[in-house]
């Protein structure tokens, strides 16, 4: 994983994820264009390009809405965790779709021989003082620039160059990009197209993202207060059967750090919830091919000692576990990274 930046290994799940993603995007764009042409056949080239602008624009908007919904959804319902995996490719593809949207917009001006009027539109300084009438294309360009920055720095070289915490701060700019895209649509097409579907789609998508974040955040706030501990400081993680096989439950140490308690058949072990790649939530991952697999980009660690399998060298902090009165308990004092600390349940 730290060898030559080949951090993200390809596996069958990733191929399937990418294939579904590409098929979904192609289907959406083709269906949008076909239906639009059927409802109102374009009379000339600019009208045909306009349909493409809308197809790619709405596609990018929905993709961004989905990307921002996956995080809270995965926290609210474990089923959605599988969507976290490979979200990076989802983001890069969103940038490409948004770029095509911008490209067709430029082509639209070119098809009419009015490219200079785009420049006039963007440099009409008096419009910058207006709310309705603000040059909404500038807002779109700003969002595209952020998406470009995020896509360009999504490679592990940048993660290593910037360090995981800085990288994570930078990638939070996705929220700013989404806000800009909402405004781009609200001050753009929504103002000069009276189709009621546009405000409905815009407000519903924005509300969905906002509500999901509020609900997931509210739930996690309770979690951050900490998991009740027994008298000796060990934290209860529940009965062994309550830990999903090849999955985990997350408990919180008194200091607020999260600990993932995994079960692989009869083996139980606890590790830090932070993946050493980008601090992804390991406890939301699964055990694949005998290794704990991070839900974000698939880095793997052995449950037995928190070490990445050879030739990789990453090591995670592990925690002592025990079973008392039929309940799995975790000592919240971490062991040095790479220390074997799992226990085995007695055979049934």
């Amino acid at each position: 994983m730290s060898v030559g930046f080949k951090a993200v290994q390809w596996n069958r799940e990733k191929y399937i994820y990418d294939a579904i993603l590409l098929a979904g995007v192609t289907l959406y764009v083709v269906a949008f264009i076909a239906i639009s042409h059927r409802i109102e056949p374009p009379k000339d080239l600019p009208e045909a390009i306009d349909v493409r602008i809308r197809a790619f624009g709405t596609c990018a908007f929905f993709m961004l809405t989905i990307i921002l919904s996956i995080g809270p959804l995965a926290r609210l319902n474990p089923w959605f965790r599988k969507l976290l995996f490979n979200r990076r490719h989802f983001g890069v593809l969103t940038f490409i779709i948004a770029l095509l949207h911008a490209w067709f917009m430029i082509e639209w001006y070119e098809a009419q021989g009015s490219l200079p009027s785009l420049l006039t539109e963007l440099t009409k300084w008096s419009d910058y003082g207006k709310f309705i009438g603000f040059p909404f294309k500038v807002i779109g360009f700003a969002a595209l620039l952020i998406l470009f920055l995020l896509a360009a720095t999504s490679h592990d070289f940048w993660l290593s160059f910037l360090s995981p915490p800085v990288w994570k701060w930078l990638h939070m700019a996705l929220y700013v990009a989404y806000g800009l895209v909402v405004l781009h649509v609200a001050l753009g097409i929504m103002q000069y197209d009276s189709n009621p579907l546009i405000p409905i789609m815009l407000a519903a998508s924005f509300a969905l993202v906002a509500v999901l974040h509020v609900v997931a955040g509210w739930r996690e706030r309770g979690m951050d207060r900490g998991t009740p501990t027994g008298g000796d400081g060990w934290i209860a993680a529940g009965a062994p059967g309550a830990i999903p096989d090849k999955g985990a439950v997350i408990v919180v140490a008194p200091g607020g750090e999260r600990i993932a308690v995994f079960r692989d058949g009869t083996e139980i072990g606890a590790l830090t919830n932070l993946c050493s790649h980008q601090n992804g939530p390991l406890g939301e991952g699964r055990i694949i091919d005998g290794c704990i697999t991070c839900p974000w980009h698939g880095w793997q660690y052995r449950l037995s000692d928190g070490c990445a399998p050879p030739p990789f060298t990453e090591k995670l902090a592990t925690y002592p576990v025990r079973i008392r009165n039929g309940v799995v308990e975790v000592d919240p004092r971490p062991l040095p990274p790479g220390t074997p600390a799992t226990i085995h349940l007695p055979a049934p």
Binding site: F131, I132, V182, L183, A186, L187, M190, L202, A203, A210
Partner: peptide
Amino acid sequence: VGLALAMSL
């Protein structure tokens, strides 16, 4: 963003 969206509506 919600305020701006409401205003633009």
